[in-house]
Design a protein around this nucleic acid. Structure first.
Ligand SMILES: [Mn+2]
Ligand SMILES: [Mn+2]
Ligand SMILES: [Mn+2]
Ligand SMILES: [Mn+2]
Lengths: 157, 157
DNA sequence: TTATAATTATAGCAATGGCTATATTATACG
DNA sequence: CGTATAATATAGCCATTGCTATAATTATAA
């Protein structure tokens, strides 16, 4: 805004908005990594291995896209790649996958408990999960707990 | 997975996951556009104009980054650019901005009502808003309504 | 064991969204 | 009016995430 004509934004308000945008950009850079390690963990659990073709199929992208992204995951020490033998999570990748799976499941459970149809909850959770802070996770858990209590009370009356 | 060793995924489950990933990728492509038109609407409302320098400041990015993104918004017919006179929303941009503002505000209000500290709710809402379907919006609204009823009952007892 | 099929890798393209440095240009002020 | 300042545009760089087409390699099966 022009200095001469504009009322200055309250510092807090503006600063907060910038902070929000920055944090969100940061989260966006992690989204794909999170989806990958989570999916890889799922595939390994279900099939004992995670191959490019299967990752590609599950994500709905082309195999060369997966190939390239896996290189990034290797560079970030999230996975180890054995040629033609699938990918495996490092400790770092394993820890991230575990965290992401829990958070993802919680978000989906929360949405469902709130009355969102399960198919829609699945879709929305896939995007929302990456933007949920620990404090919001805490609030979601508290809501679920309170709901459970309510239901128990109802059934015990 | 190897056909010979793997149990097939249930079709529904796998299909749903692919659908979720696809929808999320689609939402991700819209995020920046949504943030821009919403911010532009805010700036115009507050100051009567939306300039690159102010957009850049609010977003926390460099001015040439904004310059480039604005070209994309022009190409998508969301804004009109008048050289050295700021940007203005088209009908299309205006409608999107209105929708985004409402959705954004609702998400933030919802999180706050759930007990998330307001600063955290602001940050999380900035990312979550872009991944919330109409059905989830509806569930958020229903929650807020029910909460209000509860509070009214409490105060009237 | 060798041919075929499946899997992975690579090349090359495009769009997006960042950055810094610098050039242009319009506005505002003396 | 003309100049200083502010705003915008441009150039050129990089990383990311997608694609198709095709090559290379491994695994499977005959
Ligand atoms: Mn996930
Ligand atoms: Mn996800
Ligand atoms: Mn917003
Ligand atoms: Mn946003």
């Amino acid at each position: 805004m022009k200095k001469t004509t504009a009322k200055a934004l309250k510092f807090n308000e503006s600063e907060l908005q910038v902070h929000g945008f920055r944090q969100t950009r940061h989260n966006r850079r992690l989204e794909l990594v999170e989806d990958y390690v989570e999916l890889i963990a799922d595939l390994i659990e279900k099939y004992g291995e995670a191959r490019q073709v299967d990752i590609a199929k599950e994500l709905g992208v082309a195999q060369p896209t997966v190939s390239k992204t896996l290189k990034r995951l290797v560079a970030e020490k999230m996975i180890i790649q054995r040629p033609y033998r699938g990918v495996f999570l490092t400790d770092k990748g394993s820890k991230l996958a575990k965290y992401c799976r829990q958070r993802h499941a919680l978000v989906e459970t929360f949405l469902t408990a709130l009355g969102v149809p399960s198919e829609v909850a699945k879709i929305d959770a896939e995007g929302i999960e990456h933007h949920v802070s620990d404090q919001t996770i805490f609030a979601f858990k508290r809501f679920l707990k309170s709901r459970q209590v309510t239901e128990i009370r109802k059934s015990s009356v």
